[in-house]
Amino acid sequence: MRRAEQAMVPEAEFRSYYGQPIIKPPIWHEPHMPVYLYLGGLSGAASVLAAAAGVTGHRRLALATRLTAVAGAAAGAGFLVAELGRPERFLNMLRVFKPTSPMSMGSWILAAHSGLAGLAAVAALAPHLPDSAATAVLRFSPVAVALPAAGDAAAAAAALTGPLMSTYTAVLLADTAVPAWHEAHRELPFLFAGSALAAAGAAGMLATPRAQAGPARAAAVLGAAAETVAGALMERRLGMLAEPYRVGKAGRRMRIARALTAGGGLLAVVAGRGRALTALSGLALTAGALFTRFGVLAAGRASAADPKYTVVPQRRRLDDRAPASAETPG
């Protein structure tokens, strides 16, 4: 009703119940949810980098990315449990296997991925650990013999769960009634995959000696480019639903994310020349990936809070259908 009075702006003209939202905004908290989205993506892409590094003989990079993968998955799972209204019931997530629920599928993917990333990390770390009571089991001869092979197998399997980890979260957001997320279901997976690769590349180049971090820098550049292109395409195709990504808090976050990602990606091209450049690029890309997730969450909230984004596209859809049905009685 508030909007209907401002009929001077023709495209925003719509009716509502006292301007109240129609759908409920996502109740997921900050920083839990966006940080999980970042960590899950980071862990998934790091696993893919780790497998490739292992196959091509980049041993330091393989170690760094295997550790990144397990750290991201473990910390991410922690944020996810803390996000629940009843954290003590987190195991109920594995009570059913439900393909219609991206969160159910995500829970299974996260469970499998964490296990694989954990095994791969332990195997990679075992030779570097000092002898102690805690590591005695790793020195036990059958374990010591089987562990490297098991670790490599786990790393290879994590290269399959990893890409799912990095992209399922896009489906998680899109499979809601939130207009800015649902209508972005084509580009969001690419935005998240690019962001995840940039984040994992950044972690790889920060944690590996410069001489051996070449592939990580290349991955960071490609990831940053993919994230930038996917974001631009998404806003272009969304039409009026791009507005929540452009204005207010979400708009500020998305602009900061874009600047950091583009800047960090460009720096990554030359980051091999110096430690400071590497640090600057890696931190910019990490911050960019985080800002992207915080921005997307804020945009979803904004698009749910204003009934315009629910009513106007649905009304247009009905109006587009109306002429066809009006012909029949006439």
């Binding site: 893919v48 490739a52 990095s166 990580a216």
Partner: peptide, 14 residues
């Protein structure tokens, strides 16, 4: 599709 691109981009990096 995005997951496959992620794998492809990683392969390209190496």
């Amino acid at each position: 599709g995005a997951a496959l691109c992620l794998v492809g981009a990683t392969a390209l990096s190496f």
